[in-house]
Design a binder for these strands. Structure first.
Lengths: 178, 178, 178, 178
DNA sequence: GATGAATGAGGGTTCATTCAT
DNA sequence: AATGAATGAACCCTCATTCAT
């Protein structure tokens, strides 16, 4: 808190006038960060697109979030403070990943109803898709083994995720009549 | 350090005779932890099994590792200290995930050659399989949103990973002649 | 000070316009509190009562005062600040206990003159009666060992005080002719 | 704690090596103070004395304790910290007053059995006796209205306490045959 | 080589006080 | 005259590190 106050240019007391505790400050910070990025994710699915196109765009957004230095810094903080400030981890998860997951699983449910996908368990499938988006790059980036992810690599991961996901969840006789 | 000394059964002074600083102790500890863990993963694939069986066992081993409190503690530490101790992160990655990935991709290559799987890029596919094993549980556990993963949930994740992976990488006309 | 300001419904700045420091506010507060409390004690002795009845009512009033959370809070403050603010302690004592003592000793003197009690030193006896009213409960309550005094216990203490006091100060052949 | 450490001439860290918390330090301090003074009170009652003599000596000891600057300082501390550290108040009470009360009530019970006193409720009577010992001087001393109690005054208070107490609890036809 | 008592910088938090508006 | 944002010293406590024994 002392360091934050110093870098912000105020006193510790002032910091505590705005946030009743470190956890609250963190929560606010995280919520803010998440709110901003959720704007991006909320309009990925114009209904007219093919599932493949929508998934691709969702994958791009998710990867961009998971690879952004800002978001990774938050992730690191939350993870190392999760022991002392459990509320923090919860706030982070609910404001970020949880909402993205909900959004994707809602969309999967719709597509499933429309017959464009066959997804028995949309919640689980959404988790799988996001997991696939972590292929290779996310962990390496979090561990700072790579400075920045190559755009071509990102493209490949997303394509790979979409491709594998659709092999599992597309209707078996693909779109004959349409 | 006091607690470590107490649990090891020596004095703090002695600890400092062996490690010049906490960071050094840490570093050694993680390297050691990584070495140990590979023992488990090196014998998952008796060649006679069906790919599904082998993948399932590999998935179980990987998940067990990623969900173990010990390994998660290491992961948290490495991740939050990656900025200050890059060599630590590299050591961790190479000793742990890297070797597991190599092993799996080697096996995928063999299976591909044998025609039991169709895997154009085994390195990438191995990464995908491991990513799928992180579905749902790993992140929640790292953030301490769940205390312990339910065995049934773990089972479901592994089954889901294997199933989706095989839909993508099994030969398209499955096992006609065999 | 923030909390006081909030409960009073003004800003901290305003509080400091009226009181130059917390100690000053404090001092005024206690003086005020002392003034108020005397209202209760001034009309305990309608002259026609038996001494026992009057003592009982005085004991109840005294105990109620000594056990009230408000008065105990003042007592605690005054006691712990007595070193730094001696005038505060004096004001508290003179406005509260002193006046009660005077009142009781005046009454004892009257009763003694009337022959209903035998009290050689009314001042001292008044002190003794008040001391007896502190039996058991007052100290425990000040130390917060008990949250609230049981009404039955209070009753018992007062009865005990009156009883012991009268055994010492009632005429030896009680009220033969009257 | 900082101030204590400074006055003791050690660092704050060292203080915490010896006492795990402020409450613990306080408790130890208080217990120590109480242990010391209890030595004095444990041998007040050679069995052969008249009750009056024993009570007188007990009263002297109790008053000496309650009026000692050291003990009053403790009392003030405990009282003003009782809100934040309730264990403290309990430790103080049990180590000091409680033990004295137990001792006196045990003795009262013995005397009652021996027929030298008539005490229906020895616990309550012990509380009353101690309360009587607070006549006049204790409160004034705690509030620092008097610097030191006059020995003659102390003598008078104890005599008064013993006298009133015995008028209440001595056998009604005093010692005819003995 | 082993010990553990001592250290002191830092942790998060509170709160009486000030001062520009 | 009233405000409340800003302050900074103080609060209790932790812990990596040192050093005389």
């Amino acid at each position: 808190m002392a360091r934050i106050a110093r870098e912000v240019g105020v006193s510790k007391g002032t910091l505590y006038n705005y946030f009743p505790s470190k956890a609250a400050l963190f929560s606010g910070f995280i919520a803010m960060g998440c709110d901003q990025s959720l704007k991006h994710i909320l309009d990925i699915a114009p209904a007219e697109n093919q599932p493949e196109e929508t998934l691709y765009r969702a994958g791009r957004v998710v990867m961009e979030m998971m690879l952004s230095p800002f978001r990774q810094a938050i992730h690191r903080m939350v993870m190392s403070e999760a022991g002392q400030f459990p509320e923090l981890a919860r706030a982070f998860f609910e404001a970020g990943p949880q909402r993205a997951l909900n959004y994707l699983s809602d969309w999967l449910r719709l597509e499933s109803t429309a017959g464009r996908l066959v997804v028995p368990d949309p919640d689980f499938a959404a988790e799988q898709f996001f997991a696939l988006c972590q292929t290779k790059l996310v962990m390496r980036s979090r561990l700072r083994l790579i400075e920045t992810a190559e755009p071509a690599e990102v493209e490949r991961v997303v394509r790979g995720a979409v491709s594998l996901f659709l092999k599992g969840y597309a209707p078996s006789q693909p779109v004959l009549s349409s």
